[in-house]
Nucleic acid binder design. Structure first.
Length: 530
RNA sequence: GGGCCGCUAGCUCAGUAGGUAGAGCAACGCCCUUUUAAGGCGUGGGUCAAAGGUUCGAAUCCUUUGCGGCUCACCA
């Protein structure tokens, strides 16, 4: 697709990019923002926000615009409660009400609980082609980088109270201040602001330790803005042009609503273009997921079963404001097949004008699904179902599968391996029992079966020694049926016997292809036992 | 109570710069004596939740209603 056709794309990322340019005007740099609180494991629902922004960033860059893609970690948030499944709860208990950036990391050896959650995500995002500029809120607040923003908020205390009260049931009192304080003696936010002292002084008392003092906005690490005020403050400091938000924010009276007002009236910044994204559900995968990460499914969990392009495809192919489920059951195979289909189509543009429109949409989704540059020619494809069969034959040995196939191009090898790992993980964790098998070995010996069945199996084994792999499949197939007839067997019993001899089950992958893949030597070895 | 989203073929859903309704699965038919929820070819099937409006023309825009879901009014 040439750049001229892009503005006409009806993909939501392109529509949003066009909207940003239209509403914000021509700018040297467009600032696109995303961010969450690392107060727990970052889950796949949080990921929707990140990738939604990234897709819009790409759309803007595809239009030749320069974009700054920032990701704010709100790690000066307070540690409210200890998540389930956390070790060392007694220790963590002593850190409640302190900022999460000061809570120790009991899961790994990062600098803090917040850092643990941050690094866990930061390490995996590049795998799906996402590399934003990270901003750590705790660091900024503690270095007083937001001193002026906090002063502005304090100066407009009455305006902000009015803005927030418009939607509250319990109104903020007259002595409320638009800042929260972490006590400098005990680090807890169990404090009350008691007054201001000049432009930059703020006085507070701590209910936990009794500390009372006056701090200077420009020098203290104690102060931060509450979420609803912090958000618009950051918009103005960073000059944010675009930031989506979850449906919890985008509601009448929600935080986006009040932040818009505060941004305009207090910080003098036109609020960013935004849209609302819906939640992500999980389908299948009962119990086997997220054992390491508590109750939520993380991006890393998803990447164990979906290759990065397919993960991107899931999000790029779904409108942000509609809910969808990530499946771990048999749907996984369907998703891979769907992805492969739009990949094939991408390199095969239809002539029929009626089909062009559909093709363009799918083509754009395919482009946006790529981790890096879009390949210039159709990458090597292997059907995911076939791959699961091959992997089971070779007991998960990916190199063995590669050499069996013999035609995986060097350039596509890494992508192939990633897919193979996903497929193998899926077979082991989620494939239905019917789907799974392991090839028997000669050492396993015979499976008990009636003499007439064993005789037919033996005959097929002899046939395999002579012909398997030499004859076209169709002809081998005919010979196979001849064997069945010679022994006066119904197809059902014959097939069952062969499957029993090969994998110890009544059913298995389509036999003809399966025999071929397993190979002459192994087939004749196993059938030769009868 | 407010807001947002959804309601399209039996099922799951595509279909937003408005222009004669699409896919997959299911069903049905024919073919293949061949099967892990991928055999092949073909066929039928929808008053696009309801009503009204704008328009030459509406699944698509506006209004109202019904049903379903989520969300806000505490914190982030």
């Amino acid at each position: 697709m040439d750049s001229e056709s892009k503005p006409f794309s009806t993909h939501w990322a392109d529509i949003t990019a066009d909207r940003i340019i239209r509403e914000r005007g021509e700018k040297d740099v467009y600032v696109c923002a995303s961010g969450i609180t690392p107060s727990g494991t970052v889950h796949i629902g949080n990921f929707r926000e990140i990738i939604s922004v990234e897709l819009v960033v790409r759309a803007l860059r595809d239009r030749g615009r320069t974009v700054r893609f920032i990701y704010s970690w709100d790690d000066y948030d307070v540690f409210r409660k200890i998540p389930e499944n956390m070790p060392q709860k007694e220790l963590l208990e002593t850190f409640l009400r302190k900022p999460i950036t000061l809570v120790p990391d009991v899961l790994s050896d990062e600098a803090s609980y917040a850092a643990h959650n941050e690094k866990t995500l930061e390490k995996v995002l590049p795998e799906v082609g996402i590399e934003p500029e990270y901003i750590y809120q705790a660091e900024r607040y503690r270095a007083s980088k937001y001193a002026e923003g906090m002063k502005t908020a304090l100066d407009h205390r009455d305006d902000i109270r009015r803005q927030l009260n418009a939607h509250r049931t319990t109104l903020l009192a007259d002595d409320w201040y638009p800042v929260s304080v972490f006590c400098t003696r005990c680090d807890r936010d169990t404090t009350r602001v008691t007054g201001r002292d000049g432009d930059y002084g703020v006085s507070y008392t701590c209910d936990s330790c009794g500390n009372a003092e006056t701090v200077d906005l420009r020098k203290t690490s104690a102060l931060k803005l509450p979420w609803r005020i912090d958000w618009p403050m950051r918009w103005s400091v960073e000059g944010v042009d675009f930031e989506p938000a979850g449906k919890d924010h985008h509601s009448e009276g929600g935080s986006f609503d009040t932040a818009e007002l505060t941004s305009r009236e207090v910080f003098g910044h036109e609020p960013p273009v935004s849209f609302q994204y819906d939640f992500v559900r999980i389908k299948g995968g009962s119990g086997k997921l997220s054992s390491s990460s508590g109750e939520v499914v993380s991006l890393s969990d998803v990447l164990r079963f979906y290759q990065p392009e397919v993960v991107r495809y899931l999000f790029a192919g779904t409108r942000p404001n509609s809910e969808f489920a990530i499946s771990f059951d048999l749907d996984v195979l369907k998703i891979f097949e769907d992805y492969d289909k739009i990949e094939r189509n991408y390199y095969n543009k239809p002539e029929n004008p009626k089909k062009i429109k559909k093709w363009e949409k799918d083509a754009r989704i395919y482009e946006l699904s790529q981790v890096g540059a879009v390949p210039t020619t159709l990458p090597y494809q292997i059907q995911i179902r076939h791959l699961t069969t091959l992997l089971q034959i070779y007991s998960g040995d990916i190199d063995a599968v590669v050499s069996y196939l013999g035609d995986v191009p060097e350039a596509d090898l890494e992508r192939f391996r990633v897919r193979a790992r996903c497929a193998w993980n899926w077979v082991n964790d989620f494939a239905p029992e019917d789907f799974r098998f392991s090839l028997r070995t000669v050492d396993d010996g015979r499976v008990d079966m009636a003499d007439n069945l064993a005789a037919a199996v033996r005959t097929l084994g002899v046939l395999a020694v002579d012909k398997l792999g030499d004859l076209p499949e169709k002809e081998f197939s005919n010979l196979m049926y001849d064997v069945m007839h010679e022994h006066s067997l119904e197809s059902a019993e014959f097939f069952t016997a062969v499957y029993q001899a090969l994998i110890g089950k009544d059913k298995g992958p389509r036999l003809l292809n399966f025999l071929h893949v397993v190979g002459r030597e192994t087939v004749s070895g196993l059938l030769g036992l009868y």
